[in-house]
Design a protein around this nucleic acid. Structure first.
Lengths: 234, 234
DNA sequence: TCGTATATGCCAAACACATGACACAAATAT
DNA sequence: ATATTTGTGTCATGTGTTTGGCATATACGA
């Protein structure tokens, strides 16, 4: 059965790099559209559906970060991968804060790019067609039952999860292996116009670590990403 | 092999499309009922059994997403396929969140639609094979007879259950080990346009605990999930 | 490399609020 | 009309959530 090709929008102004990337992505079986300019890219995104957007930061007209921010503000969850010449982490943090799903510093290894592209495409698939989450999720010796709102850890302790705990767990696990920004957490667990102190989020993570980690000082599942948010890994 | 035909409810207001789809589905051997309006569709669902419901999002009276949500809240697991003109993924996610089983963007390929329909029909078969609730349900030393609308507890007291008590018990037990939200309880026991205060639900739970729990302060069967609803466990 | 600024880890205490519990009112059935 | 069932109002209670403070860790500039 003829699978539908996944479509990628590549936004990069340096022509050589654009062509090289396009070629490589097409070899991997993706359908690639390109733009060398942020403003044009935004129009394309508004008109057409893409499974993934690769954004250079340095762009004529509108820079990549702004493009990313604009897309997110229009309530579009398409996966976004940002490329940047800057290696410093402040830039990376900014990108993630503005809603990018991943961030890669130039110069990068082609293999690594392709790997991340595939990961994000998978995410796109998950968003667009699959049931969000199973009822029961297992990691390590821990088990979370979302429908029953309870969990069991390695010590066979029976934990009753509260509403917020459940929501946050769900959010983190839905985005496993990706950093979820504090902003996103606030938005999806607490709603748009409530702003509890950031301490609040910490406390929930704290509890999760108590419930599920053997050594809460060296977490295996609930990692913090300084300045950005938290990440769940299995 | 002359199997019983599977029945599909097609809810689509655009006449041409409705007819075309109906024809094609009938050619595949399905029995197709149609409605061009969400409110009517809901009534049909309440009265008649369908193996699959195909819902357009844009509908007069009640939109497709709401129809879907209402069906789910009344504790009906019938497979639902949503059709939508919108291609953006936020919309898809919303549909799936509200309990749709699949989501297809218009314009769609007929083959693809039929493929998904068949997949969902299979799911329907599985669902309908599931054992419905027995007439008599036993937990601990308690026994509930749904047909006779009565129960016996550990003290051998004979309890005559009222109509609403029975409905709520049934709902909770059908969803045992899962938290049932207050909203869902209201929808399925009281109907979708009646809203008694939340105190009312509490009172019923209170009674259940009096009937069936030895220590109503530390319930073993009827648990409350603060801010969400109630859960029955055996 | 060290110091400073900033962020998170972590605890205890305060707060807000949903539910427990009960009495009584209203609606419905007999 | 009377009994039974269902719904409402109120207060107390306990739990989930939030806050503030301080210790500790991390990033970055000097």
């Amino acid at each position: 059965m003829e699978d539908k090709k996944f479509s990628i929008l590549l936004v990069e102004d340096e022509e050589n790099l654009q062509e090289a990337l396009k070629l490589n992505l097409e070899l991997e079986g993706f359908e690639v559209s390109t733009s060398g300019d942020g403003a044009v890219a935004l129009k394309m995104v508004a008109q057409e559906y893409f499974d993934l957007i690769i954004l250079d930061v340095m762009l004529p007209e509108v820079d990549g970060i702004t493009v990313c921010e604009t897309i997110r503000l229009s309530n579009n969850d398409v996966p976004i991968l940002i490329l940047s010449a800057k290696t410093n982490s402040a830039d990376r943090v900014l990108g993630l804060k503005k809603g990018a799903d991943d961030y890669l510093a130039k110069p990068f290894n082609l293999e690594e790019l392709l790997l991340r592209v595939k990961k994000l495409i998978k995410k796109s698939e998950r968003i667009s067609q699959r049931q969000p989450l199973e009822n029961v999720f297992t990691f390590g010796e821990n088990k979370i039952d979302f429908k029953a709102s309870e969990a069991t850890n390695k010590l066979n302790e029976h934990i009753i999860l509260t509403k917020k705990e459940l929501m946050l767990l769900k959010l983190l696990i839905e985005n496993k292996n990706e950093v979820v920004t504090r902003e996103k957490i606030l938005q999806s667990v607490w709603g748009y116009n409530v702003y509890p102190t950031t301490r609040t989020i910490d406390n929930f993570i704290l509890n999760f670590r108590k419930y599920f980690e053997s050594d809460s000082r060296n977490p295996r599942y609930f990692h913090s990403a300084r300045g950005v948010g938290y990440k769940f890994t299995d």
